[in-house]
Amino acid sequence: MSINLQALFAQLLVGLINGSFYALLSLGLAVIFGMLNIINFAHGALYMMGAFAAYFLLNVLGIGYWWALIIAPLAVGLFGIILERTMLQWIAQLDHLYGLLLTFGLGLIIQGVFQNYFGSSGLPYAIPDELKGGVNLGFMFLPIYRGWVVVFSLVVCLATWYLIERTRLGANLRAATENPTLVRAFGINVPRMITLTYGLGVGLAALAGVLSAPINQVRPLMGADLIIVVFAVVVIGGMGSIMGSIITGFALGIVEGLTKYFYPEASNTVVFVLMVLVLLIKPSGLTGRTA
């Protein structure tokens, strides 16, 4: 079979873009799971809220993309903090199943409310002027906005990794993930840390939503579709490590892109096939630690 490089690179780019979203979302899920012991099924809905926040900022308040990148994650993160304070904290001591059901229900409610007002069709969100157009790299044409999404996501993922693995604050977080009781007995306000961690994970989801708005349009169900794949990514990567979820996210995006080129029929299922294989061979995921 002859290889059409143009098409191959195009699919790789699509894969990298999807991988960026997988990485940002599975990173948030891993951070939340570590501290709260909750598999946050509302994650897709919160991602969608990030995109809608950008949409409202632009169309109601006239605030553009660049500010939306900051304001939307803060606003949706704050919403997450309210969810944690009013609901999630009360089930922290209970079985995983309760957190799963609660966040799943919350996600459905949020999506339902948005669907009620906005139906199921997509609302357009324009690419900011600064990122319009593209460059010809010789071997392929690169739309600037897509390149930006990949680079920016990578930077955000690595910054989050640095925060958690290399800073004093991150050491508190890792320690509290291991033994919250003892960390609290050293004088650290662990409940507040848990709340802020949930806010961080939710903020990352919302940021992914903003990044996605110009590419995928703004739709109430945009998160529902994506999050199923992200959970498969999480199962494959395991929730044990921050770097693990970043790498798995990008890698699976690329695998999907390659599959789209070499065997398009399987491109929507390849991640799930991998998930099944990983579950059979190493049920705790590639980077360990079971839910």
Binding site: A171, N179, F186
Partner: peptide, 26 residues
């Protein structure tokens, strides 16, 4: 317990409570 610690009470627990995900300095 975080308030009690901030009053100036410190504990060295029986199981030692060394964190595996932290290096010695951390």
């Amino acid at each position: 317990s975080d308030k009690i610690a901030r009053q100036g009470v410190a504990i060295c627990p029986e199981e030692r409570g060394i964190f595996a995900s932290l290096d010695v300095r951390e």
